[in-house]
Design a protein around this nucleic acid. Structure first.
Lengths: 337, 337
DNA sequence: TGCTGGATTTGGAACGATCCAAAAGCTACG
DNA sequence: CGTAGCTTTTGGATCGTTCCAAATCCAGCA
């Protein structure tokens, strides 16, 4: 296994000095076209590959951005990750994506490894649990860090946080179900006590409170499987319930599947609203009403906010909320009962 | 913005030489415990972060594996990516995931950037289209490269390829539908002429040929949206069709949704089989019969194959096929007609 | 006390690029 | 023909580690 050629090898082959090769690499206009061509030729002959690590040794910044995601399998996060990566790529930054799989220990390891590899900024959607190790590391690194979608650390002055306006979303969702005739609206999914669950629940609770309607909440993991089981529990334990605001689309889709399995449709007589508006929401049957979070737009915003910080040193606001939009589809439409 | 401390700073603070600090970093047993403690303390005081790029400058290997995926939004690939990453992480390797988004140009850029960043091996599921730029780069790098799931380059001696035994899968799927009473089995989804489409189709065609049954094939992008529209086309243009082998689960789920939208169920009288057995297949309604590709297991195998190559220099077989398994669920069960 | 040999520690040369000041090559002009 | 004033090229120092051979330490022993 022969080692890969260096600029010295190229220089020797082209009959110039390493400095000249370096100038060619940087596209400097001050090398004579003939020389440039000779160097290019030598590089091609030898199969030279630029060694970025070596180059960055002097000039610190690597043009690498780290992205740590708590659950990359969730399509919502996948969309965020891919859009962020592509937006940064368009600006010449490479992105390292890693999945912490909701494990704070793994998360701390990943963050450590990214910092060691010299990322020049980091975007993190933190895992649940004790993230203090992670954030200690991050604070110490002094890098631009954006927390997104979940607040893992309260120091938003250090780690600016941005997310969606979930409260407004659940207000809109709940009002919509009431307009459609629902009077017993459950909240389904989300682990109790967690910030996002509380945010998404708060609007629902506020609207129900204002309308003096009863509350039923079924909490659990935010998966399709939980939605499926929640459907059974709702039908068995709370037969009066005639609408549901779900923690996310996965739960909502599970719920819809559960009702279908029981031979009971959704839409007329039972309205379901999801959260996130993942691609599948519009393509399942019945199509799912959902609080749309423009995740691609959010990812682009995040990228630009981060770039402003990295490039111009302009730190983002400590806390930002992007607007959400209720997309009404068949799963929540009553029949004017 | 103060620069980050180096081992020299740590050494000065601890009152030892840089070499000693380096030994501590490497956990060498030959430093006296007192000294080790002093160095550790100094590191903590200064908030020292290891600079891996500098370290790797000498010792070539970075412990970094690149993973280039053609479509990270597809849950099938997401599962593969996350499992691979976690398996490699368990062995101390960091993984860089990137999404080429089916764009050969972007793909070549990503691969180039990864090689420059010094990955010590690369796993690629190639984008469709002309990947010659990409594979030139890869061939030149001399790194261990595994092609998975799609063959982007025929030189499997250079780039060992591994995938699933799709032919066997579609044979099983088609036989099963015939056993359930279907006589007009369509193939739905997959772009025509592409290797995977042909592989997945070949088994179907072979079985139909042997049983002297007619062929109908509807090709298109392998998305839920296409499945949805294919349902309409099937009902309008080929009303006699009573079963479908789909290119993948997304298409199958779209197809099921399309039939549901038309008020026509799936299962009795019309059997649907998907491909991939993504998580959702078992949780939608009706649950989807699917050719299960144990993607997590496949990812783990790939990781181990790659590790054997990187660590022991033991190159994998040029071509490997992992077995698949037909998982029978309600969507394909006839009613004994 | 002087020596010996294992345990520790250390200075300096890599690694592969960039950057800078200085050298070398040109032109054109008196 | 010498040289000022460009353009182009070059050597050497540098970035933060690792590695190696050599130096230093120190306890035990004669």
């Amino acid at each position: 296994m022969k080692r890969r050629p260096t600029i010295m090898d190229v220089a020797a082959r082209a009959g110039v000095s390493k400095s000249t090769v370096s100038l060619v690499l940087q596209g400097s206009p001050q090398v004579k076209p003939d020389t440039r061509a000779a160097v290019r030729l030598a590089m091609a002959d030898l199969g030279y590959v630029y060694n970025r690590a070596a180059a960055n040794l002097r000039s610190a910044s690597v043009g690498l951005v780290g992205l740590v995601i708590n659950d990359l399998r969730n399509p919502f996060f996948t969309e965020f990750a891919t859009t962020l990566q592509m937006t940064l790529a368009a600006q010449g930054y490479a992105t390292v994506i890693a999945n912490s799989d909701e494990d704070p220990v793994l998360q701390a390891k990943l963050v450590g490894s990214m910092i060691e590899h010299g990322v020049s900024a980091l975007v993190i959607s933190p895992a649940y649990g004790d993230g203090s190790d992670t954030f200690d590391l991050l604070a110490r690194s002094g890098l631009p860090i954006c927390q997104v979608l979940r607040k893992g650390d309260a120091r938003t002055d250090l780690f600016p946080f941005s997310s969606f306006d979930y409260g407004a979303g659940s207000i809109a969702a709940t009002r919509h179900l009431i307009e459609q005739g629902a009077r017993n609206i459950a909240f389904v999914g989300g682990l109790p006590g967690r910030a996002i669950t509380e945010e998404r629940k708060s609007g629902w609770r506020a609207v129900l409170g204002a309308a003096a309607l009863p509350e039923v909440a079924l909490h659990g993991k935010s998966t399709r499987a939980f939605g499926l089981s929640a459907a059974d529990r709702l039908m068995a334990e709370h037969p009066q319930v005639d609408g549901a605001v779900c923690f996310n689309d996965l739960v909502a889709l599970g719920l819809v599947a559960g009702f279908a399995r029981a031979g009971r449709g959704v839409g007329k007589g039972f309205g379901v609203v999801g959260f996130d508006d993942i691609e599948e929401a519009s393509q399942s049957w019945p199509p799912l009403t959902s609080v749309a979070c423009d995740i691609a737009g959010f990812a682009r915003d995040t990228a630009h906010r981060l770039l402003r910080w990295m490039v111009d040193g302009q730190r983002p606001e400590p806390e930002g909320r992007s607007p959400v939009r209720l997309v009404i589809r068949a799963s929540s439409l009553g029949d004017g009962r």
